[in-house]
Design a protein around this nucleic acid. Structure first.
Lengths: 208, 208
DNA sequence: TTAAATATTAAAAGTTTGTAACAAAATTTC
DNA sequence: GAAATTTTGTTACAAACTTTTAATATTTAA
């Protein structure tokens, strides 16, 4: 892992991981770059080159062992590790995400849910009780979660993120319309549903 | 608008649109590529080149008029048009999305919600009653929605999409874990929350 | 009114990313 | 067990994307 891997490659890794998971479940235990590329709509060279960024996982004349390839990519992505997360905002999006199984499957574990709405405080989502957001610093100090999922109205985002950052949160999954910027000591993944809608809208205009 | 615009540019447009919307709301009525690029973490030349793909919206020595630039980009993205959509799956994700305001703001209008779970059929989400999925073909015939938001368990996706396609749906927003492939006569936007989690997990491993 | 500063547009250069081709290695077939 | 086939890893090439540079127009200030 000497030279830096390009972002385009990283962005493709989760998709490889998903396909390999799928293959494993259907009982396929080996695959060539060619067949994988056909399934995924890529070229075989690209598949091989992508994998080679991290060192050769394949065997000449044989192909790739699905299980160990999936495991290797999982390791690169870090989904073999356990991360703990808190959810800020127990609204529709927040609740939907908290109840979604993918979350646990990708190595994340939800340990707390916070909101500032008195109506929501005290309710349970899954098996977690919604706590007053004012308690968040104390909770973080005690439980040291690594990550926060932010699913609140746009207006409060900056203040909330900055409080969480100060309290020691290093990673953010942002569902709000505001952009949370990558910075020195934190990592951010923004999920902008509105952007996806606009992209779809564009494609509709182009193709249909 | 003759020569084709690259996908990288298209993918950046929604973000420009959001920032311009923001600027407009804070009362900024003109902006240079330089200040916009600084806000967005891009280079000024990239901003200019992106806009020039669609013809010059700016004025030398002056910059860009925020309002008309936003409007132009909106037109390119097609958010000035009205699209009607149906939602398939009244589970957590589906309901969260249906109740989300962005949806209406981006020119989409929800006209129907479908599910195959007898428990959910008859319930209301927002002001729409959940209908049996078996009715979907008839509904599409009558109401001609353009788009479907698919938020159901992975297992049923292929069958559901193929039925919708046959009934005349041309655009899909896919929230399921299965990949809905772009094809001849349809457009697809996949939203894979699991992928975002994995990307975040990777970044956490890299930087923290 | 003129000069300096600002800022776009367009074109050229540079960088990155993706594709294709080939030699080396392992497997399968005979 | 040797030959033929498969398939990777690597290198070279092509395409796409980004940045730089040059040319031109507008605004601002003296």
């Amino acid at each position: 892992m000497k030279k830096k891997v390009s972002e385009s490659v990283i962005n493709r890794l989760p998709r490889y991981y998903r396909y390999l998971d799928e293959l494993l479940k259907t009982g396929v235990d080996r695959i060539s770059s060619k067949s994988l590329s056909e399934k995924m709509g890529l070229t075989a060279s690209q598949v091989r080159q992508d994998f080679n960024c991290f060192g050769g996982f394949g065997q000449q004349g044989y192909g790739y062992k699905v299980e160990s390839l999936k495991e290797s990519i999982g390791k690169i992505l870090g989904v073999d590790k356990q991360h703990s997360a808190i959810l800020i905002g127990a609204g529709n999006i927040g609740r939907a995400f908290a109840l979604n199984i993918t979350f646990e499957k990708r190595g994340f574990h939800l340990v707390g849910i916070f909101d500032n709405d008195p109506e929501k405080i005290g309710q349970t989502v899954g098996d977690i009780v919604v706590t007053d957001f004012e308690e968040v610093e104390r909770f973080i100090e005690e439980n040291k979660p690594e990550m926060a999922i932010v699913a609140i109205p746009k207006a409060g985002v900056n203040q909330v993120v900055s409080r969480l950052k100060n309290a020691g949160i290093k990673a953010f999954l942002n569902f709000t319309h505001a952009e949370v910027e990558d910075a020195e000591d934190i990592v951010v993944e923004n999920i902008h549903l509105g952007d996806s809608l606009m992209r779809l809208s564009y494609k509709m205009g182009e193709k249909i």
